[in-house]
Computed example of a mutant assay.
Amino acid sequence: MTLPDRTTAGKVVGVVMAAGLSRRLGRPKQLVVLAGQALIWHSARAMLDAEPSGGVLVVTPPGELGQQIRAALQGLDVMFAENPRPELGISESFRAAIAALPAGTGAANFALGDMPLVSGAMQRAVLDAYTATDAPLVLARFGSQNTGLGNTDWVRAPPHLFRADLFPEFSQRGDHGPRHVIAAHAGQTVWVDLPASALRDLDTVEDILAMQREFAGWGRE
């Protein structure tokens, strides 16, 4: 774990979850190259562009893969936390992130490292909703009339922001997030609507090829 000295009392830390083992893909998706940079670079860059007041924390796996991810992010102003048991599922990454947050952190905005189409502006929308409301939960939902999902067929997916007083409730195990926390505080949730096109991640070779074509078409750097 590497944490620079920061004053973060009451501030929001952006957390990028990048400790997955990419079982479906068969190779580390964090290091897949899009427009000359690793996928995790694009996800971390988007969170940095949102300018969370407490900085950005990237959760990595242990060992060589963790070192490769850190190397791919060289030059970016991010903190690191290590999930020592990524094989136990993403729940362990949540715990590793919370344990690594600087004392006094007011909230954390959790994003997945394999959703490179979630832009800095989208992350910023989640942060702004929290600033405006101080809600214990700010959740993103993806959908659009133009994608076939329809007006009400939303898909809930990160980024998800949790206020710090909810962290003690993160008791989940296995390969899922704190769904019980979301259910318990559903009545206090503030929603941020994001386009369905940003929901795509990379689980197959076909996903990678399509994303590489899209990034090349945009001329992303």
Rank of each mutant, 00 (worst) to 15 (best):
Q188P: 00
N83A: 01
V78F: 01
P159D: 12
L149D: 05
R220P: 03
F94A: 03
Q212F: 06
A184L: 06
L209E: 15
R70K: 15
A100F: 06
L137V: 14
A196E: 13
A121M: 10
P62I: 09
N109L: 13
M47H: 01
A107S: 10
A72H: 13
G104K: 09
Q145G: 14
R24Q: 12
V205H: 10
A186G: 04
P102H: 06
L88G: 10
V205W: 06
A99K: 13
M47G: 03
N83V: 00
P102Y: 08
A9P: 08
P102D: 08
T204D: 03
A99Y: 00
G148W: 08
I182L: 15
P168Y: 03
P195S: 04
Q67F: 10
V56W: 04
V118F: 02
G106Q: 05
T147W: 04
G75F: 11
L21F: 05
V118P: 01
A183K: 14
V138A: 08
V16D: 09
W218S: 07
A125E: 14
L25N: 00
R6Q: 13
R23L: 13
D153W: 10
P61C: 00
A38V: 11
D5V: 07
A129T: 11
A129G: 04
D207P: 01
P178I: 08
L31V: 10
L3Y: 01
A125H: 02
V16H: 00
L39S: 07
N83C: 12
A164F: 03
V58P: 01
P62H: 02
G150W: 11
G148V: 09
G89M: 06
Q172Y: 09
A196Y: 14
G104Q: 10
P116E: 11
R141I: 11
W191R: 13
L31A: 08
A100K: 03
M115G: 00
D128G: 01
M122E: 15
A125G: 07
L112A: 08
R45I: 02
D114C: 02
T60M: 02
P52R: 05
G104C: 08
L76Y: 00
V13M: 08
P158V: 01
G54W: 08
T8W: 03
Q212K: 12
R220F: 12
G89A: 11
R45T: 06
M122Q: 15
A132H: 09
Q68F: 03
A71S: 09
A111K: 00
L166I: 05
T189A: 14
N146A: 15
G143Y: 02
D175Q: 11
W41T: 04
Q145P: 11
D114Q: 03
A18R: 03
G54H: 09
S53M: 09
S197R: 11
S144T: 13
A99C: 00
W218Y: 09
A140V: 05
Q68S: 10
L57V: 02
V155I: 15
G174W: 10
T105M: 07
G106F: 02
M115Q: 11
A140T: 13
A164P: 11
